[in-house]
């Protein structure tokens, strides 16, 4: 349950929401137990339930609008035109403290954040696809784009 809470905490960015999400996930897991499908990974299943609860909660409270706006903007940067990731940026990345990391994570879209966090939890590409409900083939590019955004964000903070 600790790793589920860890995921909820950074996904939602709030201690209160994290607790609600874990409770909601357990309640749903309980109700949904009869639909638990053959061959499904139980841990991934719980994470998926929690992530769905998070999406539903956001839909209800309408906190999505600003995030959705920033989503398209941050995604398409042609590699050929981007500035070199130089020594100053590296220094900033090295010096990033917990608060910076949290801030950078919260600046990502919820989907990007989920993919990064799930990867850190050790889930495979296939499991991540199952949890966030996307095609397995897109996880790798989603993850690399999300990490790319994180690097750039963290490099900015200390410049």
């Amino acid at each position: 349950m600790d790793s589920l809470h860890h995921f909820a905490r950074y996904l939602s960015g709030s201690a209160v929401d994290a607790e609600d999400l874990v409770q909601e996930a357990y309640a749903r897991a309980f109700r949904a137990a009869p639909t638990f499908a053959w061959g499904t990974n139980l841990r991934a299943w719980l994470f998926r339930i929690l992530r769905n609860a998070f999406i539903d909660g956001r839909r209800r409270t309408r906190r999505t609008s600003d995030e959705d706006a920033s989503e398209s903007a941050s995604e398409e940067v042609p590699f050929a035109h981007e500035p070199l990731f130089g020594d100053i940026e590296m220094e900033a990345l090295r010096g990033a403290v917990a608060a910076d990391i949290e801030r950078a994570l919260s600046a990502l879209t919820a989907d990007a954040r989920a993919v990064v966090l799930l990867d850190l939890e050790g889930f495979s590409e296939g499991e991540i696809a199952e949890i966030v409900g996307c095609a397995a083939g897109t996880v790798k590019s989603r993850l690399s784009r999300a990490r790319d955004s994180l690097r750039k964000l963290l490099a900015q903070y200390r410049r």
């Binding site: 349950m1 809470h5 090295r94 917990a98 963290l154």
Partner: peptide, 17 residues
Amino acid sequence: ADIELSRTLSRLPRRDA
């Protein structure tokens, strides 16, 4: 930079329940 990012992310505090 991505290698450094992995190191940075490992400093993210664990948030146990």
